[in-house]
Design a protein around this nucleic acid. Sequence first.
DNA 1: TTGGTTTAAGACCTTCAAGTCTCAAAAAAC
DNA 2: GTTTTTTGAGACTTGAAGGTCTTAAACCAA
Lengths: 145, 145
Amino acid sequence: MKVLSKGSVYALRALTYVVAHKGDIGYVSIGELSRSLDISFHFLTKIFQQLTQAGILESYRGPNGGIKLARPPHEIKVIEIVDVLEGPEFFNTCLLGLPGCGEFDPCPVHDFWAKAKEALRREFELTTLAELGTKVSDERLRIKP
Amino acid sequence: MKVLSKGSVYALRALTYVVAHKGDIGYVSIGELSRSLDISFHFLTKIFQQLTQAGILESYRGPNGGIKLARPPHEIKVIEIVDVLEGPEFFNTCLLGLPGCGEFDPCPVHDFWAKAKEALRREFELTTLAELGTKVSDERLRIKP
DNA sequence: TTGGTTTAAGACCTTCAAGTCTCAAAAAAC
DNA sequence: GTTTTTTGAGACTTGAAGGTCTTAAACCAA
Ligand code: FES
Ligand code: FES
């Protein structure tokens, strides 16, 4: 059951790590995140490039450079990250793989699946990076393998 | 968002078609199902082989052969098909891709995801092929692209 | 100015689900 | 028997996601 792509997963884990362990000050280098979370450096770089271009992150090159959140963590919703990395069709998938997913021409499992997707969308809409960070730093929930 | 593999999806669509359009009598050839639902014949054959070996289907070779349900449609739950085709780890995935998913060492989104997965499992547990078939034959819900 | 450190960009490789193809085996019709 | 129709089994190919590598560009410091 692969709901999120590796890109979204790595982005969420890495940014949660930043919020939990680095606070909101200065740039964090991708190399450190890669090492700390055991994620491929180059792959993480590509993911962050997308988020930077989307205005969610800011980057800075050179010594002591890296990435940082463009806005405070409590203003950045999980769904923003997912939207960028999964694309606009993410919440428009039919559970039976049929093209489109809507009321107009539903499949036999649409009633259930529409509600399940809406619950997921709502969760992503309501959860911010600040909350994820707090859970990791306060409750010590895990974020790495 | 790919929740079910193509294998599960094709199996559910094909067996729902059988229940809705063929009733519970005799064998239905894979060739007809492949043509009617626009699914690769050879791929569908491989999927049905797994379900036959698992005892969910029965097959018969030669003219007028094909596959049929091993039990009446109202006794075959969706989860049985998913279990065979997705394997035992299907409901044990962490939303953040961490190994295992359990209360003992949860990630920051575990609380939500555990409930969401349980809702999906429950739906698959409660839904039978008979119900899917009825929805397609009575309410004319779609089952092909 | 030179060299080290870092992200940016894109080419390239790998892996695995998905899909295709080929031949064998079973059954019926002739 | 022989041929036709069907599933069984497995090798092979494809495509896309995931991952690696290389070079460029920005930035700092000695
Ligand atoms: S149409 Fe299939 S889930 Fe909505
Ligand atoms: S541990 Fe991550 S969802 Fe359960």
